[in-house]
Design a protein around this nucleic acid. Structure first.
Length: 418
RNA sequence: GGGAGAGUGUCCCGAGCGGCAAAGGGGGCGGACUGUAAAUCCGCUGGCUUACGCCUUCGUAGGUUCGAGUCCUACCUCUCCCA
């Protein structure tokens, strides 16, 4: 790949964010000579963003850090339609209320990464519902629809895949790319936005927007996509047994978030340090020289830095300290996730099954707890539970006044009587 | 409108002569080994139950049977062929 002269593209390139760029030289020149405005769209399909969305967020972060203007586009309108890209099946239709609720949850995350207008920054938060919701169908067809060739739309991967696999693609979803293209044009009109970024699966959609911009406004627009990030062993990022790794603290605690990064595979550490932390590359180069068990130092760095970005420095260091005491010293850290239980329950005697399943929520059901006991996976105060009929009482309280329940080596919950 | 086929364990894929809690994968979880890694090996992977066992599951609703994922009828959804 050519070397970029603008700070923005140079940084994205050396940190591994770039998969494809349209007209890289022209974009580089503009990013070098002027302040450019770029956007990324975010779906409102869930109440929070998860780790998978972190990559685009980081691209906006670097955009602003290198002197440009980021636009976060909330898909309040497009989420009502549903993007067929990369999906085998139609998505379930979300109610407008659900979308609205999700939108609010997602919004909060961005203030960690970007400085918005009114907060001493220049970032813009937009919502495509503002223009999509009031479109008039016939007008839209005449103004926008005439620029689209169905022949060409059928050739895009997102559509082709569905057709080839003989899976249904509704007319509703078929229109998604038209709406997304229109978003780009609308953002160009409103904010002078010239660049849309996104994951590699968005390339087709973005290019549609570029075409539309040229036809309607004779504008030169650009596309930049990031690679699909998978772990070295091929798994998609952001999924664990417990579900997605959400960015909101009420869905995934800072401690669990820290743990997620701490458990990164060896082969991914350097790549992730570049993508998901803002550590200087020189520092990352130093960490990448570590070998064998020393790589754990790099993983801790990754975990703490990545957590600090999302949850703040203090929460990140608290999580690191909790982990250090739990894993390295083997002592009890009172800052482990804690569940309060009624003191009366304890005096009456609390069955282990209930304690693990209902109270701590470490396992999904009593049956699951039984199975785990049979395979030696449950521990109370670091002693393996051998008997599923075991009863917890006040005698099991440690000096710190809690009972430590563990599932496997890594997952711990403290029961605290109140 | 006519004809043919498909829908299986609510993570996915996928077998299933009328006796099935239902083969086999993948994924996930636990154990061993390690470095809170990877790879490898072993176990588990519907719910309730101390247990005998009970309950809920194969697109939906009925029916035939001692007994139905398996047979019949209707309906729903998706494919394909003809019009």
């Amino acid at each position: 790949m050519s070397t970029y002269r603008s700070d923005f593209l140079a940084i994205l390139a050396e940190r591994g964010f770039i998969h494809q760029v349209s007209e890289p030289d022209a974009l580089d020149a503009r990013a070098k000579s002027e302040t450019i405005t770029a956007y990324i769209g975010f779906d409102c399909t869930a109440p929070s963003l998860h780790v998978g969305s972190l990559l685009p967020i980081m691209m906006l972060y670097w955009l602003q850090q290198t002197g440009h203007r980021p636009i976060v586009l909330m898909g309040g309108g497009t989420t009502r339609v549903g993007d067929p890209s990369g999906k085998d099946e139609s998505r379930r239709m979300l109610s407008d209320e659900a979308i609205d609720r999700n939108l609010k949850g997602i919004r909060a995350i961005f203030s960690r990464f970007l400085k918005f207008e009114g907060e001493g920054g220049n970032a813009v938060m937009a919502n495509n519902a503002d223009w999509l919701n009031r479109l008039n169908y016939i007008d839209f067809l005449r103004d926008i629809g005439r620029h689209f060739s169905v022949n060409r739309m059928l050739s895009f991967d997102a559509v082709k895949l569905r057709l080839e696999r003989q899976q249904e693609l509704s007319f509703l979803e078929f229109n998604y790319m038209v709406l997304q293209a229109y978003d780009f044009v609308e953002l160009h009109r409103r904010y002078g936005c010239i660049l849309q970024m996104g994951g590699s699966d968005q390339w087709g959609n973005i290019v549609n927007g570029i075409d539309l911009g040229r036809r309607m406004l004779n504008a030169q627009l650009f596309a930049l996509t990031s690679p699909l990030i998978t772990t070295s062993s091929g798994a998609k990022m952001g999924k664990t047994a417990a579900g997605a790794v959400w960015l909101n603290a009420d869905l995934v605690s800072p401690y669990d978030y820290w743990q997620y990064w701490r458990n990164t595979e060896d082969g991914d550490v350097v790549r992730f340090l570049k993508l998901f932390t803002v550590l200087p590359l020189s520092e990352i180069a130093r960490l990448s020289a570590l070998k064998g068990a020393e790589i754990n130092e790099a993983k801790k760095m990754l975990a703490t830095e990545a957590t600090a970005l999302v949850h703040g420095r203090a929460a990140a260091e608290a999580a690191a300290e909790t982990a250090r005491r739990t894993f390295e010293e083997g002592t009890l850290a009172e800052t482990l996730p804690t569940v309060e239980i009624a003191r009366a329950d304890l005096e009456r005697g609390l069955g282990v099954l209930v304690a693990f399943a209902e109270k701590a929520g470490l396992v999904a059901s009593n049956s699951e707890a039984r199975r785990q006991i049979r395979s030696g996976g449950l521990r109370v105060n670091d002693r393996t539970v051998a008997d599923e009929k075991m009863i917890l009482t006040a005698h099991d309280l440690t000096a710190a006044g809690v009972i430590k329940l563990s599932l496997g080596r890594k997952r711990h919950v403290l029961l605290k009587p109140v």
